[in-house]
Design a protein around this nucleic acid. Structure first.
Length: 316
DNA sequence: CTGCGACGATTACGGTGTTC
DNA sequence: GAACACCGTAATCGTCGCAG
């Protein structure tokens, strides 16, 4: 007898599911009605047993599962074998039908649900919540292993008086939940970065609208700066930022701080990053400025020294 | 090819907050 | 306080990948 067969049968019977659903539903419904059911009361195993005892009369198949579950140490394999003998293997559709029927049966309001069974093919879902204790145990295992194998699930299901299906469902949903949380977290990080870039963009735009002469500190005449130059300044500022970050990172790895590019490059570089780009590239390709590091001996006398413009935000 | 498990999408349901 | 929207969660459904 295969494990899968057991699972099929146990699910096919719906016995465990019915029982557990009944238990939890009773608990939940009682808490729902009272609205302030203490969580400790929800987790009482005694309630489980009582409900089991009550619900066992609903289905002949249930008694088998009940005995094993109520014992807390029943032979599950025997349960499955017994059930297979009594009921036989069912198809998946039959499983669902069976479960739906049981749901209706122990739903309490059987009158209208019978009619619903006949007319509405859609299964009415029984809703319940796992007890806090069950959740706690499930969470504990989830922390250790988000993908428990069948043995672990079976063990857990026995310990918590849950059907293995329910344990499986719970882990599935929990993984989905985890993934969603992770995505939300990543989204928030991206949003933050986006906001930061947006602010930076705004400040750069602002700086472009109100250029400041780096020599005299007064307002630069916008006519003196071509559009390409402005782009180059922005690009260079961005590259400088990137360089600073890389330096900081490299400093961490090397164990000693790397303060700036200028210190490691021999001849002193011009203060304005624009000079680098303009000096080496002239006004040719912006892309090459963006993609190449500003290194080389001929970065000296650009035209920028006379009219380098620094964004407001970078002046401090 | 078949059976099984996992996954994503979806449904059904109950709880909670908000609005009028 | 009823109506409604929204959210969290258990369960279902369809699909895919993989082992036998």
């Amino acid at each position: 007898m295969s494990f899968g067969g057991f699972l099929d049968n146990s699910t096919g019977s719906g016995g465990g599911a019915r029982i557990v659903a009944d238990i939890s539903y009773n608990n939940t419904s009682s808490s729902t009605h009272s609205n302030n059911m203490p969580s400790s009361a929800l987790a009482q195993p005694r309630l489980v047993t009582q409900s089991l005892t009550k619900s066992m009369f609903n289905s002949p198949g249930l008694s088998l599962a009940l005995q094993t579950n109520a014992d807390g140490q029943g032979d599950v394999t025997r349960m499955a074998e017994n059930f297979e003998t009594n009921v036989g293997r069912r198809s998946r559709e039959e499983e669902h039908e069976s479960r739906s029927g049981s749901d209706n049966m122990d739903g309490g309001s059987g009158d209208d649900q019978d009619a619903a069974d006949n007319t509405n093919p859609r299964k009415k879902k029984r809703y319940h919540r796992h007890t806090p204790q069950q959740i706690q145990e499930l969470e504990a295992l989830f922390k250790e292993c988000p993908h428990p194998d069948e043995k672990q699930r079976l063990e857990l299901s026995r310990r918590l008086c849950l059907e293995t299906r329910q344990v499986k469902f719970w882990f599935q949903n929990r993984r989905t939940q985890m993934k969603t949380q992770l995505e939300r977290h990543e989204n928030s990080l991206l949003r933050q970065e986006n906001d930061k870039l947006r602010a930076e963009n705004m400040s750069i735009r602002d700086a472009m609208r109100n250029p400041i002469c780096s020599n005299c500190g007064g307002p630069a005449i916008i006519g003196e700066i071509s559009l390409e130059e402005q782009h180059l300044r922005i690009e260079n500022a961005r590259l400088k930022d990137e360089l600073d970050r890389v330096c900081a990172l490299a400093g961490k790895f090397l164990g000693r701080p790397i303060s700036s590019l200028a210190t490691s490059m021999g001849p002193p570089l011009p203060s304005s990053t624009l000079e680098l780009g303009v000096g080496s590239n002239g006004f040719g390709g912006l892309s090459s400025v963006a993609t190449s590091m500003p290194v080389g001996p001929d970065f000296g006398g650009g035209i920028g020294s006379a009219m380098s413009v620094v964004p407001h935000s970078r002046l401090v």
